[in-house]
C-alpha cells in the first residue's frame, strides 16, 4: 500500500472513530507512524556529560523494512570517522565496522545494551520496527494535557520471554496524530532510568518526524540530543544494501 495513503487512512479512521481506541490500537498506530518503509537521514548527536562536558558526533543513517534493518555511519569527529553499525532483525543482530583495523565484528546480544559511542542511546534504542507490538503488552493509564496537547498515557510492560529492552515503558502519545512525545524507560527496580523527549515535530513527506530527540539518563545525569539535519522517506534501498559488503564501504 502506498505509505502516504496508509497514513491518511490511519488518521481518517482515528478521527472518524467516536470511541477511544484500545491501547493495542494506539501502539499499532504509533508503530506505523514511527516506522516508515525506508528512510535516509543525516543527523548530529550531542552528548552532555554529568559534569557538563560536551562531544558532538555526526552520522548518516539508512533504514529499511519499516526499521527492521538499519545502517549508521559516523562522519564526525575525525577519530571515529567511518565507524559503522549494521543492525538486522530489529537490532537483534548487530555488526560493527572499525575503519582503523578494517575489521567487522559481530556483537553479541549483551552489546545491544551498550551506549552507542558513549551516548545515552543504546544500540537497542536505535533499533526500530515493531518492538512495542511484539515485546510488550500495553494498557492505557489515562489522559493528560501537556502544552495544550491532549495525550494518552500508555503503559508498556515487557513480555519476559520476548527479551524486551526494558521491563517497563510509559509513553505519552498525542491524540491528534498518534505521535509519541515522551517515553520514560524503567529498570528492574522500577526506577525511571531514562527519559526520551521528542520535539520540533514536522511533517516530512507525509510522516510526522521529530527533528529533535533528547535522551536523559536519570542515573548518570547525562543527556544526548539527537538532531535530524536532513531526512527523506523516498529513498529506496538497492538490493543487498543492508549487508556486510556495504558496511565496509
Amino acid at each position: 500500500m502506498n505509505t502516504k495513503l496508509f497514513i491518511i487512512l490511519i488518521l481518517t479512521v482515528s478521527t472518524a472513530s467516536a470511541q477511544t481506541p484500545t491501547a493495542e490500537q494506539i501502539v499499532d498506530r504509533v508503530t506505523a507512524i514511527m516506522s516508515p518503509e525506508n528512510s535516509y537521514s543525516k543527523g548530529s548527536q550531542t552528548i552532555i556529560t554529568s559534569s557538563g562536558k560536551e562531544r558532538v558526533f555526526e552520522f548518516e543513517s539508512w533504514a529499511g523494512g519499516k526499521g527492521e534493518s538499519s545502517l549508521t555511519r559516523y562522519t564526525k569527529p575525525a577519530a571515529i570517522r567511518g565507524q559503522a553499525f549494521l543492525m538486522l532483525n530489529n537490532a537483534d543482530d548487530i555488526w560493527s565496522y572499525f575503519p582503523r583495523t578494517k575489521r567487522v565484528r559481530k556483537l553479541a546480544s549483551h552489546a545491544k545494551k551498550q551506549k552507542m559511542q558513549g551516548s545515552d542511546f543504546t544500540y537497542e534504542d536505535m533499533g526500530g520496527g515493531d518492538v512495542f507490538q511484539k515485546k510488550f503488552t500495553s494498557s492505557i493509564l489515562g489522559e493528560e494535557t501537556k502544552d495544550g496537547e491532549l495525550l494518552w498515557k500508555i503503559q508498556l510492560l515487557g513480555i519476559a520471554d520476548q527479551e524486551p529492552p526494558y521491563p517497563k515503558i510509559i509513553m505519552w502519545v498525542r491524540q491528534s496524530d498518534y505521535y509519541p512525545i515522551i517515553l520514560e524507560y524503567y529498570d528492574e527496580k522500577d526506577f525511571n532510568s531514562k527519559t526520551l523527549l521528542l520535539s520540533d515535530i514536522q511533517i516530512i513527506e507525509s510522516y510526522p518526524t521529530a527533528m529533535t530527540m533528547v535522551m536523559t539518563d536519570n542515573k548518570e545525569r547525562s543527556s544526548t540530543t539527537m538532531r535530524t539535519l536532513e531526512i527523506t522517506y523516498a529513498w529506496e534501498p538497492p538490493k543487498g544494501f543492508f549487508s556486510e559488503r556495504n558496511l565496509k564501504k
Binding site: R105, K106, L107, A108, S109, H110, A111
Partner: peptide, 10 residues
C-alpha cells in the same frame, strides 16, 4: 565461527 551463547559473545 562467531556468535553468542547464553548472552556471551563466543
Amino acid at each position: 565461527i562467531v556468535g553468542e551463547l547464553l548472552e556471551w559473545g563466543l
